[in-house]
Computed example of a mutant assay.
Amino acid sequence: MTDENKDERLSYEQARAELASVVERLEAGGTTLEESLALWERGEKLAGICQRWLDGARARIDAARHESAS
C-alpha cells in the first residue's frame, strides 16, 4: 500500500490529530528549512484530508435535510 493510499484511509480524527502535531512542531521551531518544508507539505496534505471529510459530512447533512423536506 502506498503512503497516499494510507493517507486516504485516515479518519477525520486521525488526520486532525496528526495535523495538530505538525503545527506544534512548526510553531516550536528548531527544525531545518528542509524539515520545515516537509512538515508544511504534510500539513497541507492533512488539511486537505480533513476538508474532504468535512465536505462529505456537509453533503450528507444537506442530502438528509433535502430528503426529509420532500
Rank of each mutant, 00 (worst) to 15 (best):
G30W: 07
C50Y: 03
E35K: 04
L33N: 08
L46D: 05
W40N: 05
W53I: 02
S11L: 15
T31W: 04
G48H: 05
E13T: 11
C50P: 05
E34A: 15
T32Y: 01
Y12N: 06
G29P: 05
R25C: 01
A17H: 03
R9P: 00
V22Q: 02
G48T: 07
W53A: 07
G29F: 03
G56A: 10
T32F: 03
S11C: 04
L19N: 05
D7M: 14
E8W: 08
E44Y: 09
G43F: 02
E35R: 05
G29K: 00
A47L: 14
C50F: 10
E13W: 05
R9I: 09
A17Q: 13
E13Y: 13
L37N: 12
E18L: 09
E41G: 01
E27H: 02
L10S: 08
Y12A: 11
E34S: 15
E41S: 01
E34Q: 08
Q14R: 09
I49T: 14
G48P: 03
G43E: 01
D55N: 12
L37R: 12
E44H: 06
D7Q: 06
G30Y: 09
E24F: 00
W53C: 07
E13I: 08
A47F: 12
V22D: 04
E13K: 10
T32E: 00
L37P: 00
V22T: 09
E13C: 03
L33V: 14
I49W: 10
G43I: 00
G56Y: 01
S21N: 13
S36K: 00
R25I: 01
L33A: 13
E44I: 03
L10I: 10
Q51R: 15
Q14T: 05
E44T: 11
G30N: 06
E8S: 07
N5Y: 07
Y12G: 04
L10H: 02
G29T: 01
E44M: 10
E4V: 06
G43R: 00
